[in-house]
Design a protein around this nucleic acid. Structure first.
Lengths: 350, 350
DNA sequence: CTGAAAGCGCTAACAA
DNA sequence: TTGTTAGCGCTTTCAG
């Protein structure tokens, strides 16, 4: 099937191609009668504008590039889905630049793909970039928004990772726990990725505010995985007597779920013997009855897309930093520490 | 920063724009010396071809559209990542068309976005399409490949869902189980999505070959979720006495993991009292020691991308159906049924 | 092997 | 409000 051109629509509607363009794009003025004629003709012929010709002539592509470090993790899938759907709604395609392919692929993205003038804007998701990569991004010469990470001089949206972690721990201290373990992520040496550090600092600040002394022996790395959380929790909960924490604050829900499973395997009840709290509100968190501080990655994606659309369609600048909401969701994995060690019911699903 | 045009490169290299184009694209012939001069000039100026101008002139976009029903599920993320990275490697961008946005968004994708002539080919992932949507896809007039689903007349890659499920159940019968429950997905009424049906049929065929009579009371729906699997397994395992299955074959790993957790909550040991097998090799399956029939969605994405690249870059047609591999992965959630009901060790991680 | 030149299909001045 | 027209930046005949 051969694609229909604007000239055919023009002919059928009895107008010039310029009028067709105006009627279809909404730019410029067209009399209602002619506009309708154009719309009818276009519909009858099944005309859809050829994006590359349109881009070439107008300088607009109606396409947004999303640069993302992985696709196969819950958070990123959520953000991408929210952004993509919102952009689609506004008439924008989304072209995906996934950096998971290693350094070669990564270099290609920054040296070639993004510079092809295929996008009107780029959304950078949770990216840790080199100064050179940032320079390339600016070289694209298009609006740039980042989410879940900070690039100097670029509007960014994100949750307050310190506050989030602090809130999770506050919930635990508020219940009366005083021996609280922490399972965090190892800060990467070669990266300035702040998330693990901030969540750790949040935990410590909460302790401090509650007047609890920080004990380095209670802070372990869990790698942000189920398995990592499980292993770290076994370590923490295997400690004898009063060294064993009565609560664990994990920097992510996956690790927190690992901790719940570790507790069960040790014969400890949650929240009877240990309370566990996480951060994220992961897909499976509700199932495990996990108390967590929810962030809303899908909505984060939507927000980021809106910032971009505002800028592109309405030439509206956004503030350089937008703070995204979080929310404590209390479920059944946390409770007051019990005075004596008597058996207790386990959480639903456990 | 203003983008560099082909004319500037031509001027700097002392050749015509035609020669620059030939040197950079590899189409046509250029003397080695001039080619080098062009390459140097392009590198010095940081020239990258403007994709829309190139597309308009050549009819090629170096972009592939991927149409996918969700992003936030493990399987789809994996397929997408595999396809995207492979395509990137070959110099193709990937534009994402996610159908999760509801009917309006869905209609927009098929009526507008895909027809914008922005893609050289489209990859349809696990799609259930209406005849009208299929017609639209053909109207795009570009190569079309589908994966994890079948569109009449379109090259498709996929695993044999019946064989996969049959193998999982065969593993159980092979161990000596004769009372085997099944947790499947509800076949959608308004869709011809074959997966749930095929996996159910695989289970039944395995039973039949083992000479075990199919008992409808042992086949439940689990919705392909952790929670669904948990609920269904509680149902199955709550049955008194000899009606209680000694093994469960689940149509997906998420449901199988739900079943393992249900067994634990009932105080049943896995695999001591119940064996559980799944299908997928989900991210968390190894952690739970789940025996499963693995499919390899990342590699599936890679394969699909290769088919497309072969067609686009080498004009090579692929066979209309490519069968993708699967593999039984035996871990610790399955064992022989035990003759008497004595306590047994549980699986690692459990 | 190379250059000149004619578009690719559309948009945006500009003129009417 | 509308049509005419000159490109947008590149690729690809076609001559040479």
């Amino acid at each position: 099937m051969q694609a229909v051109s604007i000239a055919e629509v023009a002919k059928r509607a009895g107008v010039s191609t310029a009028t067709v363009s105006r009627a279809l794009s909404g730019r410029g003025t067209v009399s209602p009668a002619r506009k309708q004629a154009v719309l009818d003709a276009a519909a009858a012929l099944g005309y859809v504008v050829a994006s590359n010709a349109s881009s070439l002539a107008s300088g607009r592509t109606r396409n947004v590039g999303v640069v993302i470090p992985f696709l196969d993790r819950w958070y990123f899938g959520q953000v991408l889905e929210g952004a993509q759907l919102t952009l689609l709604e506004a008439g924008y395609d989304v072209t995906l630049y996934n950096l998971a392919g290693g350094t070669r692929a990564r270099a290609q993205v920054f040296e070639q793909f993004l510079l092809r003038q295929r996008v009107d804007a780029v959304l950078a998701v949770a990216l840790e970039l080199t100064p050179h990569e940032i320079a390339r991004l600016h070289q694209v010469g298009k609006p740039l928004v980042c989410i879940g990470g900070v690039i100097p001089g670029v509007p960014s949206l994100g949750i307050d990772d310190l506050a989030v972690s602090e809130l999770a721990t506050d919930h635990l201290t508020g219940l009366g726990h005083t021996t609280i373990g922490f399972i965090g992520g190892k800060p990467e040496v070669d990266s300035d990725f702040q998330l693990p550090v901030q969540r750790f600092d949040g935990y410590r600040r909460s302790l401090q505010r509650a007047g609890i002394e920080f004990d380095p022996a209670l802070a372990l790395y869990g790698d942000f995985t189920l398995d990592g959380g499980y292993t770290a929790a076994k370590q923490l909960l295997g400690a004898p007597g009063r060294h064993r924490p009565t609560a664990i604050s994990a920097a992510s829900d996956e690790m927190a779920i690992g901790a719940i499973l570790a507790a069960r395997d040790l014969g400890l009840s949650v929240p009877g013997d240990v309370s566990v709290a996480g951060v994220d509100d992961y897909v499976h968190s509700e199932f495990f009855g996990l108390t967590t501080v929810a962030q809303f990655p899908y909505r984060q994606g939507v927000e980021a897309a809106r910032v971009i659309i505002d800028q592109l369609d309405h030439d509206r600048q956004s503030p350089s930093a937008i703070s995204l909401p979080h929310e404590l969701v209390v479920r059944s994995s946390t409770a007051r520490p019990r005075p004596h060690s008597s058996p207790d019911k386990t959480s639903p699903g456990g």
